[in-house]
């Protein structure tokens, strides 16, 4: 319901479709407070695909959940920053308004579509619910629209399958249902959290192609959260690399693969097996990611970095490397050159 967004305070048609600004998310655990997301900023425009790349624990999924407003209190909460849709700060909105934006303006595709669906309701009914709740559609109309959406994600004989329950779908079909649920109300922003990680290679190709087509047709802003550098290379326009709760590098997809500007990105690229590395040892990043419950003032990658020096005890800001490129490394010039 874009008119809802337009009516909200701060709306600015010139602002990026989605922007996350200096976001902080904390979790209360048995071992103290963990700052899972520590000052993350990124922006994505309409029709653009931003890949958020990171390993487990980098905070990439938590950021996405914060955007959706599904970081659950009291364990986890957003402590600072802003999440803006066309300039409207979601964090200042009342919960009721956020709920009305969820699904209509910003929607999410989960890694495990099965757990995102209610197992005791037919999938068609669950999609129809969206139309009834957000659009006030009649039962019949909602059902017609649900079948239409299932058809759009290319589920064969959609009208018949709308009556099936989630467990009756195969892995790939289930993820299509998950996508159908997300795109039902033509959201402006889709956040896909590892949408193909649980799928086979050949099915992954189908799903990525479908996502790409949907995005092109509707000019959706797509945030693709993934750990797979291959998938990123196939689909992303821009890439934000996350490490230990921060964005360490942001750049266009071609640049980041050709000339990474952060040692972590460079090491990640070196760790991928490639045909010409056969029989050779892969480059590895020594050690393991830091313990997030023990914050460190300096660069979080410092203990594993080959370029680490005394200056790295100060946390590096995001340096502007080139137009549209940034790197959180004091030594970025050295990295980018060689």
């Amino acid at each position: 319901m874009s008119d809802l967004l337009e009516s909200l305070p701060g709306h600015d048609p010139g602002a990026p479709m989605l922007s996350v600004e200096d976001l902080q998310v904390e979790f209360a655990t048995a071992h103290g407070t963990v700052r899972a997301v520590n000052g993350v900023s990124y922006a994505v425009g309409a029709g653009e695909t931003l890949a958020v790349l990171g390993e487990s624990g980098s905070g990439k999924s938590v950021t996405a959940r914060a955007v959706m407003g599904i970081v659950r209190a009291p364990r986890g909460r957003v402590t600072a920053g802003a999440i803006r849709l066309r300039g409207v700060d979601l964090l200042t909105l009342p919960e009721e308004t956020r709920r009305r934006l969820r699904g209509t303006t910003v929607a999410m595709i989960f890694q495990d579509a099965l757990s995102a669906l209610n197992p005791v309701l037919p999938v068609g009914y669950q999609i129809a619910e969206m139309f009834r709740y957000h659009r006030g559609a009649s039962r019949r109309e909602a059902r017609r629209r649900a079948v239409e959406v299932l058809d759009r994600v290319r589920i064969p004989s959609a009208a018949r399958r709308a009556g099936d329950y989630p467990h009756q779908f195969s892995g790939g079909m289930r993820q299509r249902v998950g996508i159908a649920l997300a795109i039902a109300l033509d959201p402006k922003v889709i956040i896909a959290d590892e949408p193909t990680t649980a799928l086979d290679v050949t099915v992954q190709a189908q799903i990525m192609r479908l996502l790409g087509e949907i995005q092109r047709e509707h000019g959706t802003a797509l945030v693709l959260i993934t750990h797979d550098m291959g998938v990123v290379a196939d689909i992303a326009d821009r890439v934000a690399v996350m490490y230990a709760g921060r964005v360490v590098e942001e750049a266009g997809a071609h640049d980041i693969y050709a000339r990474p500007a952060h040692p972590y990105t460079r090491a990640l690229l070196g760790a991928i097996p490639r045909p010409h590395l056969r029989g050779k040892r892969l480059a590895v990043i020594p050690g393991a990611p830091p313990d997030m419950s023990r914050p460190d003032e300096g660069c979080r990658f410092r203990p594993r970095c080959e370029l680490a020096g005394p200056g790295c005890a100060d946390a590096p800001p995001l340096y502007d490397v080139a137009p549209g490129r940034a790197s959180a490394c004091h030594e970025w010039t050295k990295v980018i050159e060689g």
Partner: peptide, 9 residues
């Protein structure tokens, strides 16, 4: 063919 290759080029 479906194997993702880490090279946007």
């Amino acid at each position: 063919s479906a194997m993702p290759v880490p090279d946007p080029g």
